[in-house]
Design a protein around this nucleic acid. Structure first.
Lengths: 238, 238
DNA sequence: CGTATATTTGATATACATCAAAACGCGTGG
DNA sequence: CCACGCGTTTTGATGTATATCAAATATACG
């Protein structure tokens, strides 16, 4: 139970930040790329609104959606180490991105240690989140991964004070599948099963709008998937 | 082609660092834990020698090896965000760990910006690496994942100026399988196939010692796995 | 409205997991 | 030093979740 209105923390952070270092504001639309793998690193970005995917690319042409970004999330940390971004950052819907020159940001940190704490917290959170993703992919069956994906989406929206009873997946089944390490068909089937079990419901028009009456039901579904056979057998044992 | 002897960069970094902030040195043995999920965050650590696994834990009891750490790697970034570590850091062999109080480190950074750059580079690299792991697990078949695992291990040793023609996997097949998202049997079979193809060879006693005459052969093997059927069919087409 | 793109759904194939047993290596204590 | 027991690894037989292939249907878009 947050003391403040949900999303307030992010708003505060962004207000403080833009007071400290003048951001370079930029509107983006679905498909726009704010940085690309290989491009010279120089800026970090924060999403003020909208929604991004981060796509990792391998030398041999594989691509992998490795992260999804919402309002208040930072983008571009991957570029610091080698001076070049190693992923593409692609907008999934209309939004606004704030860009900061990394060197300016560091100067500001010297004056305002609070800012450094914010930066480190964001990087730390990203590391922790990436590890959770790996764990999901490695330990959950396909249906549970999809449920977990929706649960996490709802959680992200909640933290930002946004509606969660009806969400819009601005990704194709193929993109979701790529992110979760499965095929688009498996995503489709998983969603169908979730709908059959009344854990989600599709809005009348378009299967990208999903109604989620009860987010806890998603967690329960995940648990059911991994503790799979509470077989009736034990009950038969006297 | 590095201008310096491989491993020199890491040695320099560690020398500079310990000159700046007195580390708390600690010997560890296989099985020792330097921090645990849930424990209050306060320190960051660097491995001076030895080898660690980082294990992520979920509320429902799943565990996932999410990262492997070698000499010069930092441990504990995951704890910054929420003030508590979210993983276990477990030693896999005898080694030495240097601990630094995070607040002291930040003070030192204020004086010595070089240090901050080192810290950020390490966090950035960790983010990039975690994403590569996710990509491997999501896009490579089991055999290729094992080959890629060995290739990365060799690469890590090379960067540190250590021998790579004969490496000792200080992990069980089960641990490797957990890290790579497959069963221990699949790991065993993959290694057997790599040995059959003469890409690796087991040392006489004990199947934990692996000889890798040519690291590039591992990369080639991975590529062969993902471009799987260069079917002879095309050749038959006039 | 018609064409292209997403999505669903079904039939089938397959990579990998699971289950089971044997072989191996390793430490312990006689 | 050898015998024993335990944990690890290998290997084989079988099962299954998910991928693949293939239509049919729905939706968006010009």
């Amino acid at each position: 139970m947050p003391r403040q209105k949900p999303g307030q923390k992010i708003s505060d952070m962004m207000a403080r930040l833009s007071g400290q270092v003048a951001p370079q504001r930029r509107m983006v639309h679905a498909g726009d790329v704010i940085y690309q793998a290989g491009e010279r690193f120089g800026h970090l970005y924060i999403l003020n609104s909208g929604f991004f995917k981060i796509v990792n690319l391998s030398a041999d042409g594989r691509e992998q959606v490795v992260s999804l970004k919402f309002r208040g999330d930072w983008l571009g940390f991957d570029g610091i180490a080698d001076g070049h971004y190693v992923c593409d950052a692609v907008a999934m819907e209309t939004g606004e991105v704030w860009g900061f020159r990394y060197d300016e940001l560091l100067c500001a940190c010297a004056v305002q240690p609070m800012l450094l704490a914010v930066l480190h917290e964001a990087m730390s959170r990203e590391i922790a989140h990436d590890r959770d993703s790996l764990m999901s992919v490695c330990t959950l069956p396909a249906d549970a991964r999809v449920a977990e994906f929706l649960r996490h989406w709802v959680e992200s929206l909640t933290e930002r004070g946004m509606r969660t009873d009806e969400i819009t997946l601005c990704m194709t089944r193929a993109e979701i599948g790529n992110y979760l390490g499965m095929t688009l068909e498996s995503v489709s089937r998983a969603l169908t099963r979730l709908a059959r079990d009344k854990i989600i419901a599709f809005a009348r028009k378009g299967r990208r709008e999903v109604r989620i009456p009860d987010a806890d039901a998603l967690s329960a579904f995940v648990q059911r998937c991994i503790a799979p056979v509470p077989t009736s057998k034990p009950l038969l044992v006297h």
